[in-house]
Write a protein that binds this DNA or RNA. Structure first.
Lengths: 218, 218
DNA sequence: ACCTGAACACCGTTCAAGT
DNA sequence: ACCTGAACACCGTTCAAGT
């Protein structure tokens, strides 16, 4: 999309065209900076600084900051890829594996979780279809499968939100070098919290509930 | 706490003491305004305006906005009261009733949910003790009961967070006169979302999981 | 002790003016 | 078409100065 050769596409001096700014480049930088420093840290001026441009320039590509944030979420959502799980495995394990891939993906981009609260990605699309289909194999049919899938998604999404809130919480301090581990100081002295173990527990609870409540098993 | 008679304790003219401002009064007004207009709407200047004072005055009572917000959350958390549920009812129903009271309370103060993400209330205290005890009657013992209760709380709290995020979401529009109902425009045309029904579903899932996974029944 | 008035650094956003 | 420079209204916060 640059105008000429393959030269460095930034900071080509004041005025006129030539910075070679694109929506994709802006989104990529924004995502990178937010994943590193947190969502609140990023301002339009700081983003512009890191790109080598003035803040006003961003407003030619995005009509406002919200639109930019939405594009960031959309980008991460579109990057979601998942492997189909072994079809011969027990259905419960397949659902579990399916959901775990969702968690793994959002974990790589905590930014998207934070922003996703205000700007939910539009396309749950194909990923959701697989989920609904898996629930169908558990015995749920039609709308019932869709609703149960939605409930499961809310549980998982809710877990992400709670986990995400710990990062900015006053009482929780992340342990360095140990992602998913927090020190909690509340009431009777500091204690430890392992969100990975807790996620296992929550997921088990939900899956136990799904299998227990299923109309029939196959 | 006012200095003299029972006269109106605000806007007593410029300079000096006499506004009769207290931490409690500030917190109360802040909570009321946030519940009405949303958390983001409230600024220190707007809050001061509604009290009849200049923004700087607030900083004598609170060292910054975060401290004020924390006090708001703490206040709502302390207001949480719950009725003990009938002891002769099935344990599952007791747990359900217990959790529902939590939901009802936070629903009255959406502000606390929003703020609670950054400033988790310190005392889950007595309410949590009852929960753990109920899980004990389901067959979980000791630490296992605590961990399972924590998982359940994360599910419920997570639900609140997701629900809360819908209010500020771009794709969801609350239906007037029907709290808990949203119109969702995503993909294939607008659809409806009833969060109360969805909460029932999520809670059922979790409780089914809890009873299914319990070591023994009594 | 408690509050005002005026400032400071910062924010998102706009827009004429440049090339 | 694409970007700069300078402004606007707003924010949280500080602090000397008043009473």
């Amino acid at each position: 999309v640059a105008d000429g050769g393959g030269a460095d596409s930034r900071a080509r001096g004041p005025g006129g065209r030539g910075a070679g700014l694109t929506r994709e480049a802006i989104v990529a930088t924004a995502l990178e900076l937010m994943d590193r420093h947190g969502v609140e840290w990023l301002t339009m001026r700081r983003l512009a600084d890191h790109i080598g441009v003035r803040a006003g320039a961003l407003y030619w590509h995005f009509s406002n900051k919200d639109e930019l944030c939405q594009a960031v979420v959309e980008r991460v959502a579109n990057d979601l890829e998942w492997r189909a799980v072994a079809v011969d495995a027990p259905v419960r394990d397949q659902i579990e594996a399916h959901v775990r891939q969702l968690r793994a993906h959002w974990r790589r981009h905590p930014t998207a979780v934070t922003l996703g609260r205000r700007f939910p990605p539009s396309g749950a699309g194909a990923f959701g279809d697989v989920g609904v289909e898996l629930l169908g194999r558990l015995g749920y049919r039609g709308d019932e499968a869709k609703e149960q899938w939605r409930a499961l998604v809310w549980i998982v999404l809710g877990f992400f939100f709670v986990e995400d809130s710990l990062a900015s919480s006053v009482h929780h301090h992340p342990l360095e070098g140990a992602p998913g581990r927090f020190e909690v100081d509340v009431g009777s002295g500091p204690s430890l919290l392992d969100t990975d173990a807790l996620f296992d527990r929550v997921l088990d609870l939900a899956l136990d509930g799904l299998t227990a409540g299923a109309p029939r098993r196959r």
